[in-house]
Amino acid sequence: MAEAVAVRGLSKRFGRFTAVDGIDLTVQEGEIFGFLGPNGAGKSTTIRMLCGILKPSGGCGRVAGLDLFRDAERIKRRIGYLSQQFSLYDDLTPYENLRLFLGIYRVAPSLWAERIEEAVASVGLRPDLHRIVRGLPPGARQRLALACALLHRPRLLFLDEPTSGVDPLARRAFWEFIGGLTRQGISAFVSTHHLEEADRCGRVALMHEGRIVACGPPRRLVAEVLPERPEAGLEDAFAILLRGRAA
């Protein structure tokens, strides 16, 4: 299988502070890759480098089949990104937001009606399509953001804490939606603080203070860290991994 993301030694320094410290990552096509770690671990910084928002201080690699440094602009056409904070126009309606991003992604206007229809149907935005975004509940906004990120049919999605502040039912619907996407071969790179969501991921990476502490399928990680406790969960394993670091 081809790799959607493959980077080595990726790092980011802000002045003298190193937020990401030479990490290696690979994400397979069609995989849901979970990105876990405490606050300030460097998850968002990593995602922002992979998306081309931040220029890495070091490292090399490919994203969506293109060189991270030389083809940063072309990468943008192939990926979708959902930032940690809602970052669409909240004084516009969902329809106006979708239309704007169709224009920005240079989708041919003949396809606009169809794409908007598709987006609305897939994430269930119909009743809110012409209401100002500011007044919509967080769940609906999140679905809109997802719809916007998918308008240009990217093969790779970066989702930075997509489920924070969303109710459990909506979260479940969200993960089912992502699962549906990956069955079409789309890869998803998802950061989260909800450890129970890690079970939805093919593999997870645990990040701490700019480094990857552990990486692999969630079940196997637990088995490796706590071989004598088959009933243990990811939480127990991470507690031990992070404590070991701190000591």
Partner: peptide, 10 residues
């Protein structure tokens, strides 16, 4: 934060 969203587009 909308600027960030625009930066990840072409």
């Amino acid at each position: 934060g909308t600027m960030e969203q625009l930066i990840v587009t072409p």
